[in-house]
Design a protein around this nucleic acid. Structure first.
Length: 764
DNA sequence: CCTGAAAGT
């Protein structure tokens, strides 16, 4: 029976007997009808499971005030089958009685979709003019979960349930009550609203993955919870390290915050270890995959490897060996497809992991098998369905940060126990599975670390530190980190920000630093962009900043390397890779009418489109600070000015050529480096700035541009104060420049004085 | 001399 339709109410025979004054309030009206409004009697945060179950069964959607659709009933029936649905009463008891809760549950338990909805029905954020946020680590997850939950709640996506990710805000202020968002997005909101006043409850999902943004948010939320008794915090994580989160969020020591365990459905996974350590994990991996193909029951295989090249190589080898097997005995094994998976693959090719296994070659013959060979993407961010066998060699490529030389590098290293468990779990998503670990059980127990090091221990923290200083954090070393980064990492970040003049010598934010923090860029890029109007080239520097913030735009397919290199040579500007990037972007824009332009030039259309998006966003931020967008018409002058602006941001990333063997020495850190093979300069200039230092087969500097030493001395006098340099060729070279300049300016001043005297005489 | 793991603002 409808309860909110006035026309129908007047038709109701019972109303005729009521006194007109009784018709004023909605609740008495509904009560007299015997049909309460769906949320009748709900006291925010004191709601129980019975009340919510009744509301869920109600014909009227309490948020849209429209009748529920037929589809709603269907979805609700499916939700009722989730184990977490049966735990509603317990959840509400805990939610009512606690400000902070830790929720654990395995993937597939429904915690990401159900818990936020439970909270909506109890918290009723709209009655306080607030909303509920649920963070996600990835953009795609935020979008897809929001879509699902909007369907479950029978609302239009972007109205009562929405999402907010970079470049895309699918919410409606005043209507949205549940907002999924990336953790980075919430962190950027913190800058202008340190206590997150617009939220009544914040749910941090996948906290166990310990992303940089989540780690920083945890510290800030813990502090906000003390200041704001009305703020509820729910930290959701995988089971393994729940206690660590419970302890961290306890206000009083020794009293952990309560834990809510979401039941899930998991299938058993049998784990096998090797008897002896494997000397060559790649060879062992190929052998194991073929063993599975020959001897195991039908079911797809997921093999974890470390990097693109290795994956492509192994795919070829597996395919060859499988063909050999078939040649030897066509009836023994079925056909096999090998599918590579890594993030830089175009989405269309990533979709191949969802293709079914190949059919048997002959009717009734041995079944086909699909082998997915993947980097860590398949461990957390991409789920391949129908995997029965996992092959885990126990390695992944991981970031390592060395604060001494300010270098982040990628190293192939052993994974953690938590990661091994996660990998094994990928075999049991649709039924019982098997996991083959290519290391011994003893090594698993004794050699692998419990947890993967959180990002905050492996990253350069300059952007994070700038954000924290901006929101007023004073003492970063004694900041309440869950895992404190090395003090040296923090010192390096503070030092960089000080040299860039974002912080003064006391560590206070300068007006420049305040603007830098508002740009979604590394501090060096932000600085270079902010000074660029002074060099009359903000238009160009804006493009370079955008291009440096997106993945590599150059494609170099294994079998077309020569063609790709030739295409690149046509776009190369010999003065420097930064200028080449500028040129590539401009050509991309000039050729936007040609759909195949990127492809025929061996460029990633996806990365270029992303650069375009970033550029637009940065342009809006520039407008906010009334920064001019300017260009010079003289192409020679413009390239020179762009390089000068680059120096203003990247003067700490300079290398000086030593000798004739192509060796460079980084300034001050004195690391011996070489120009990366991708570098497009046709000479080896004496002084270069570089965008990044990478450690692969040897130390390289990548994305390099020639600069003049005079600019270093002029635009970064504090950093290039010669008394702070160790003796060496770099210092001597700079000294020569200083001397020359001094001599020249002495002559200049004398000349000037003479000229002026002449002029003065003339004027007389 | 010889080339990028994943994600995010």
């Amino acid at each position: 029976m409808p309860s909110n339709n006035n026309l129908k109410l007047q038709d109701n025979p019972y109303l005729a007997h009521r006194h007109p004054t009784q018709r004023d309030t909605g609740s008495s009206r509904s009560k007299s009808l015997g049909v309460k409004e769906p949320l009748y009697g709900f006291l925010p945060r004191k709601v129980n499971g019975d009340q919510v179950r009744r509301a869920l069964e109600h014909e009227i959607n309490p948020f849209t005030e429209q009748p529920h659709s037929a589809q709603y009933k269907e979805i609700l029936d499916a939700r009722k089958k989730l184990p977490v649905y049966a735990q509603m009463d317990d959840f509400y008891k805990m939610f009512t009685n606690n400000q902070i809760i830790v929720v654990v549950g395995e993937t597939g338990s429904g915690k990401t979709t159900q818990i936020p909805q439970f909270i909506v029905y109890s918290d009723l954020p709209h009655t306080k003019g607030k909303i509920i946020a649920c963070t996600q680590l990835r953009r795609v997850a935020a979008v897809s979960v929001a879509k699902r939950v909007a369907d479950e709640m029978d609302v239009e996506l972007g109205r009562h349930v929405g999402y907010s990710i970079r470049f895309e805000n699918m919410t409606e202020p005043g209507t949205t009550l549940l907002q999924y968002m990336t953790d980075g997005m919430l962190l950027s909101e913190v800058m202008n609203d340190p206590n997150l006043e617009r939220y009544s409850a914040i749910i941090l999902d996948e906290a166990h993955e310990r992303s940089l943004a989540t780690d920083i948010l945890m510290v800030l939320l813990k502090a906000s919870a003390k200041k704001r008794a009305d703020l509820k915090i729910i930290v959701m994580s995988a089971t393994l390290d729940a206690l660590k989160f419970q302890k961290y969020f306890s206000v009083r020591s020794n009293e952990a915050v309560p834990l809510f365990k979401v039941h899930g459905r998991t299938f058993p996974i049998e784990i096998f270890y090797t008897q002896e350590p494997e000397p060559d994990y790649v060879e062992a991996a190929i052998r194991t995959v073929l063993m599975i193909h020959r001897a195991e029951a039908p079911g797809d295989v997921l093999l974890f490897l470390t990097e693109e090249e290795e994956i492509e190589d192994v795919c070829l080898k597996i395919k060859l060996e499988a063909d050999d097997l078939i040649d030897q005995d066509p009836d023994a094994v079925g056909p096999l497809t090998c599918i590579p998976l890594y993030s830089s693959l175009p989405p269309q090719q990533q979709q191949r992991i969802f293709d079914p296994a190949p059919p048997p070659r002959t009717k009734g013959g041995p079944l086909g098998r699909k082998i997915v060979v993947s980097t860590n993407v398949a461990e957390t961010s991409l789920t391949v369905d129908g995997i029965v066998y996992v092959v885990d060699p126990g390695f992944s490529k991981q970031k390592v940060y060395n604060p001494r030389i300010r270098v982040e590098s990628q190293l192939i290293s052993p994974i953690s126990k938590a990661s091994a468990q996660q990998r094994a779990g990928r075999a049991g998503r649709t039924g019982p599975g098997k996991c083959f670990r290519l290391y011994t059980e003893k090594d698993f127990k004794n050699e692998l670390e419990e947890q993967t090091h959180p990002e905050i221990l492996k990253s350069n923290l300059s952007t994070a530190v700038l954000t924290l200083v901006k929101i007023g954090v004073k003492d970063l070393v004694r900041f309440d980190w869950m895992d404190a980064p090395a003090p040296e990492t923090l010192m390096r970040a503070l030092e960089l920000l000080n040299y860039l003049a974002a912080l003064d010598d006391e560590g206070n934010l300068t007006p420049l630093g305040c603007i830098m923090a508002e740009f979604p860029l590394d501090p060096q890029l932000a600085k270079m962009l902010i000074v660029s109007p002074e060099f009359k080239c903000s238009n160009e520097v804006l493009t370079i900043a955008a291009m440096l913030s997106v993945p590599n735009v150059w494609l170099r397919p294994n079998n077309q390397r020569r063609e790709a290199d030739a295409a690149k040579a046509l776009l190369t500007i010999p003065d420097g890779d930064h200028l080449t990037m500028l040129n590539v972007y401009n050509e991309y824009v000039n050729n936007q009418h040609d759909r195949n332009w990127a492809l025929t030039h061996y460029l990633s259309a996806r990365a270029l489109a992303q650069a375009d998006n970033v550029r637009k966003q940065l342009e809006r931020t520039m407008e906010r600070f009334e920064m001019e967008l300017v260009s010079l018409s003289d192409p020679v002058k413009i390239y020179q000015n762009v390089r000068q602006a680059l120096v203003c941001g990247f003067f700490m990333q300079v290398a000086h050529k030593e000798g004739e063997k192509g060796n460079y020495l980084t300034v001050k850190d004195n690391q011996v480096v070489a120009l990366h093979p991708s570098c497009g300069m046709d000479t080896q200039p004496e002084w270069v700035i570089f965008n990044e230092f990478v450690l692969t087969t040897r130390p390289y500097i990548r994305t390099v541009t020639e600069v003049r030493p005079e600019w270093l001395l002029e635009y970064a006098p504090t950093y290039f104060d010669l008394s702070s340099f160790l003796d060496g060729e770099t210092k001597r070279a700079l000294q020569r420049v200083v001397n020359k300049k001094a001599g020249k300016s002495n002559r200049d001043t004398t000349k000037d004085t003479r000229a002026r005297t002449r002029k003065q005489k003339k004027n007389k």
